[in-house]
């Protein structure tokens, strides 16, 4: 096998699976199911953003829904005002990134770490939730949009072809857009983590003071990582609003933040592939739980989170990377050659 292929085998495997899903799912699934799968894909993007800042940056963010909700609201408000969805997507990523940068400057440059970052981010989410919830009156409007308080903003237009507001994307196009966005985010983060920035970031997670002794600015690295995570969460919020055509303050709720953390715990903190799978699995689980009456969804979610923290603290990612992926790769090879085995012995 070509050395490039061998050293990037898992990346290529993810790419192949991604493209297979991108092409195959619209053919295999009914439109209704495809719509639901699109939502899972959007949540996978959201999971990736927290996977990056928590799993690799070591920043414990308990209020990640602040960025998700801000992106969602920024998109809703700007797309109704502008009409064309091109600029609103940019705004929906830029605003959460700015918020993250401001918060990050506030926290990391004061050397606040660990649990206290969790408290502050949670508090910020609560602030957003309270404020947006209270904007029910007619005086709360931005341009043509009533914020609507707890009723949310209805009738948000979906995405359109860039600079052509009349060419609105259909459900199937929406799936492709979300899937491509997910793959771009995944490979973008992978690339970032291989670059010098990503390596320093991981080093900061492992030992902040040692990294500083070596002359790197840990604060700046955390700040940038946090902003990138904010932007990605904003993108997820934007796609979420465009997908459903509706946004309400529950996007800011603590339950939403808890969900993202559950995806990560199930998938595995410290990986990128795990949280995507966790997001899809748990969203599928909650969606199917919502359609029956016997068990309360919170009981199941709580049990899942408890069980993973106590029994499977590494999540399901190790199962995927250590067992499924080699199996998938060995399926790709025709048969294990003697050469590759002996080469493995030498290294």
């Amino acid at each position: 096998m070509h050395p490039f292929v061998r050293s990037n085998a898992s990346l290529i495997a993810v790419g192949v699976i991604g493209i297979a899903l991108l092409v195959g799912l619209p053919l295999a699934l009914e439109l209704f199911t495809l719509l639901r799968v699109t939502l899972f894909v959007i949540f996978a993007i959201l999971a990736l953003s927290l996977a990056f800042i928590w799993g690799y940056g070591g920043i414990l963010c308990f209020g990640h829904s602040a960025f998700f909700g801000l992106g969602a609201y920024a998109y809703a408000v700007s797309v109704i005002n502008v009409g064309d969805s091109t600029l609103p997507i940019v705004i929906a990523m830029a605003l959460p990134a700015l918020l993250a940068a401001a918060l990050g400057y506030f926290m990391f440059y004061a050397r606040i770490s660990d649990v206290y970052v969790g408290v502050i981010t949670l508090t910020v989410t609560l602030i957003f939730y309270n404020v947006v919830n209270s904007t029910a009156g007619p005086q709360y409007r931005i341009g043509d949009v009533h914020l609507g308080g707890f009723n949310g903003i209805p009738n948000v237009p979906s995405l359109n072809v860039p600079f052509d507001p009349n060419a609105v994307l259909g459900p199937q196009d929406m799936f492709w857009v979300c899937m491509v966005a997910l793959m771009l985010v995944y490979f973008g983060l992978r690339m970032l983590l291989r670059m010098r920035f990503g390596r320093v970031l991981i080093a900061v997670r492992e030992n902040e003071s040692r990294v500083e002794f070596l002359g790197y600015d840990a604060r700046l690295h955390k700040l940038i990582a946090f902003s990138i995570g904010g932007a990605i969460a904003g993108l997820a919020g934007c796609l979420f609003t465009a997908w459903g055509g509706f946004i309400s303050p529950t996007a800011f709720s603590v339950v939403q933040s808890a969900q993202i953390i559950i995806w990560l715990m199930v998938g595995g903190v410290g990986t990128l592939i795990g949280p995507m799978i966790g997001a899809a699995l748990i969203s599928w689980l909650t969606a199917s739980l919502g359609s029956q009456q016997t068990v309360d969804a919170n009981v199941v979610l709580g049990t899942v989170l408890l069980a993973f923290v106590l029994l499977v603290p590494k999540g399901i990612a190790p199962i995927v990377t250590d067992q499924l992926m080699p199996w998938f790769l060995s399926m790709c090879r025709s048969k294990p050659s003697v050469a590759s085995v002996s080469r493995k012995d030498k290294t």
């Binding site: 414990l60 649990v115 309360d296 919170n298 009981v299 199941v300 979610l301 709580g302 408890l306």
Partner: peptide, 18 residues
Amino acid sequence: MVETMLATWGLSLFIVGI
């Protein structure tokens, strides 16, 4: 500490559900 927070968060969802 962090694991305790996550576990008790799960517990809180569980109790709400029950």
